[in-house]
Amino acid sequence: MNIFRLVADLLHLASIVILLIKMYATNSCSGISFKTQVLYLAVFIARYLDVFWHFVSVYNTFMKVFFIATASGVVWAMLGPLKDSRSKSLDTFRWEFIVAPSALLAIIFHDRFTVTEIFWSFSVFLEAVAILPQLHLLQQSGEAETITTHYLAALGGYRALYLVNWIYRYFTEGYVDVIAWCAGLVQTALYCDFFYVYFTRVLQGRRFALP
């Protein structure tokens, strides 16, 4: 564990807490892509179900349980109590176009040809692009509540710090994980446009609005 990875994980955790606060405080999930949230739940289930047979550390176990539980809770809330506030007409990204290629890539690129390793690869590729329905929704509406942008900023920050963590781990322990690196690079790059608007508008105290 190094400081970059720890802060990254805590940002990831914070992003979900921010999302839960937004949904609870406003009793609404408007502006949040249901598709992205379902994809994240799929990502966590595909990657973290090994929590039952693969022990790494108490920290690792806690985080896995936290991510599966909260992602389930978010999807449950968006299906049930907050269903009517969903931005359905804006959440129009075709999820098939990212799930199918992720599955195909996982079958081609994996560490070992086993069910769990292919699921791991699938989850890594899917996580890289799971934010696309959310970014698409943002583009469709052209604006976002400030708390929603903080959620996205924490998610993007988490990914950016993972890149720093990998550079650090490469030089300190010779750590190499080409699949995670390529997917992580793509995942972080997707946030560039968002971060530009976030830094130039939201952090200057203005509304998030696309030109």
Binding site: H12, H54, M63, F67, D111, W120, G174, Y175, V176, D177
Partner: peptide, 10 residues
């Protein structure tokens, strides 16, 4: 460079 034997990251 080495590859860790298992996935230790989240």
């Amino acid at each position: 460079a080495t590859k860790v034997a298992f996935h230790d990251e989240l």
